[in-house]
C-alpha cells in the first residue's frame, strides 16, 4: 500500500504539534499492512526526527508544505519526504555528533539526524524543482 500525508506548518504552533498526525498516519498504515512492531517504531522515529527538523529549521524560509509518502514493502517501508523549505541535505549538511565524548561534554545537537542516517537504508537526497526530495527505507529487524 502507498499513502501520502501533507503537513502544513501552522504559524505560532510548536513543531511537535504535528506529531500526533504523523503517529496516527503510521499506525493506520501499519495496521492495514501488518507491519512488525519494530518497523512501526523505526518509521515513527525516522519521521519524527526528519519532520520536526524541517518544521523547526525550514519554517523561516518559505516552507509551506511537507509531503510524506509511505509505501509498504517486504518487511520494510519506503519513506519519501518532499518539502518546499530552504535547500537542506539531511544526509550531508549537518555533521554527525561525536558520540565518543565524555558525559559533561556531550550535547544533543545533530543526534536526531544521526539516528536517521544510521537506522535507515538506501538514503537519497536531491534538490529539484525548488524542493527538497528525500527517500529512505526503514527495515524491520535489521
Amino acid at each position: 500500500m502507498r499513502r501520502s500525508l501533507n503537513i502544513t506548518p501552522v504559524p505560532g504552533a510548536a513543531a511537535a504539534e504535528a506529531l500526533p498526525r504523523i503517529v496516527a498516519f503510521v499506525e493506520e498504515m501499519a495496521e492495514l499492512d501488518d507491519w512488525a512492531p519494530d518497523l512501526v517504531l523505526r518509521s515513527n522515529l525516522i519521521l519524527e526526527e526528519l519532520i520536526l527538523n524541517t518544521l523547526t529549521h525550514g519554517r523561516t524560509s518559505g516552507l509551506s508544505d511537507i509531503e510524506v509518502t509511505l509505501e509498504s514493502g517486504e518487511n520494510s517501508v519506503t519513506i519519501t519526504l518532499v518539502d518546499d523549505g530552504a535547500a537542506f541535505d539531511p544526509l550531508n549538511d549537518e555533521p554527525s555528533p561525536d558520540t565518543d565524548l565524555p558525559l559533561q561534554e556531550r550535547s544533543i545537537g545533530g543526534l536526531g539526524l544521526h539516528l536517521v542516517r544510521t537506522m535507515a537504508e538506501d538514503l537519497a537526497y536531491k534538490h529539484a524543482d525548488g524542493k527538497n526530495h528525500l527517500t529512505l527505507v526503514a527495515r524491520a529487524g535489521a
Binding site: 517504531l41 522515529l45 519524527e48 526526527e49 520536526l52 544533543i108 543526534l111 536526531g112 539516528l115
Partner: peptide
C-alpha cells in the same frame, strides 16, 4: 518502548 532525540536530550 519509544524514545526520540527529544527524549535523549
Amino acid at each position: 518502548d519509544y524514545i526520540s532525540s527529544a527524549g535523549l536530550r
